[in-house]
């Protein structure tokens, strides 16, 4: 890093104005876990870092009858440890607990994870299966877009100069309500911690009283330039009972829908195989949760293999 200055805005408006004025020369920083590496290795060379951490009102998790809202400055570690989220969106908690290390999760924010737009990022698929809506502040005020529209390509978002992601709003069943929903996030990695997802899979399932699927969503990471929502899952599952054959079929369709690359973390062909393997498991675990056949608050094994004990 050479001669980077730090600007500390005291209001959101000030931050937006500063970023709008400086364009590419200014980069927002929150936890810094991505920005600091990017500047050190020269991937970006801003003149200004705009420290958002002092901005009030952008941190915290709130619930209502329809779901939850997470401020962009909320730490990944807070998401991982949040008991309310654990019941409403186990997928999000499962995604949070495998992101980096405790130290990185203590620093990193959900806004930073989303805006860095890494194709293998953990948070996006978990939020996408909860109908995430991104709230964005900019020179012209606040606008909201479906979260999927935030991602344009590796490292690129649809944010305009001066725009800041401030919040993500998600749908989730209230644990005290009669409706039954469950979600799950699984991934494939080389190491069992401190690794990037070779493939990440998030699934959510809602069922009615007869255990018939009334809603289903599926999202993948690391298998396309952007986090990928597999919309067809809804058509394939809603109105049906979940069967192994059906989840396998969804896995097959998802594997076809994605467009992975070959790199040092595996070939494209391998990644499709992993999608086909993890999708049925994620759907099944989400369904077990929706149908109250899973211990409350218990997180799934990282790759979803439910091995029997000896």
């Amino acid at each position: 890093m050479a001669n980077i200055d730090v600007f500390v805005p005291s209001t959101l408006e000030e931050a937006v104005a500063f970023l709008a004025h400086h364009g590419d020369r200014a980069i927002p920083i929150a936890g810094g876990t991505d920005v600091m590496i990017d500047t050190r290795i020269g991937r970006i060379s801003p003149e200004w870092l705009v420290d958002l951490r002092a901005l009030s009102g952008l941190s915290g998790i709130e619930y209502d009858a329809n779901g939850f809202r997470i401020g962009a400055l909320t730490r990944i570690r807070s998401i991982e440890l949040d008991q309310g989220l654990r019941q409403r969106s186990t997928a999000l908690v499962e995604a949070a607990r495998v992101l980096g290390s405790v130290q990185v999760r203590t620093m990193a924010t959900i806004g930073g994870n989303l805006c860095h737009a890494t194709p293998s990022a953990e948070m996006p698929p978990a939020l996408l299966v909860h109908h995430g809506i991104a709230e964005i502040a900019g020179p012209d005020g606040i606008r909201s877009i479906p979260l999927g529209q935030l991602f344009v390509g590796p490292g690129h978002t649809s944010l305009e100069p001066g725009e800041i992601l401030v919040r993500v709003t998600c749908k989730a069943a209230n644990p005290s309500s009669a409706s039954s929903a469950g979600s799950c996030y699984l991934r494939q990695t080389v190491r069992w911690a401190m690794d990037l997802a070779g493939v990440g899979v998030a699934a959510s399932i809602e069922v009615d009283e007869a255990k018939v699927v009334s809603g289903a969503k599926l999202a993948l990471s690391a298998v396309a330039p952007v986090p990928l929502e597999v919309d067809v899952v809804s058509d394939m599952l809603v109105g049906k009972e979940l069967t192994p054959q059906l989840t396998k079929e969804v896995g097959r369709v998802a594997a076809e829908a994605c467009s992975p690359i070959s790199d040092v973390r595996g070939t494209a062909e391998y990644r499709r195989q992993v999608v086909a393997a993890l999708v049925p498991r994620a759907l099944y675990i989400a369904w077990l949760r929706a149908t109250q056949n899973w211990p409350v608050g218990k997180l799934a094994p990282i790759n979803g293999v439910l091995s029997e004990e000896e």
Partner: peptide, 13 residues
């Protein structure tokens, strides 16, 4: 009281 990696933490923050 919370652990951070100080290599990625700006001192001014």
């Amino acid at each position: 009281g919370e652990p951070v990696v100080s290599c990625l933490q700006l001192a001014c923050q």
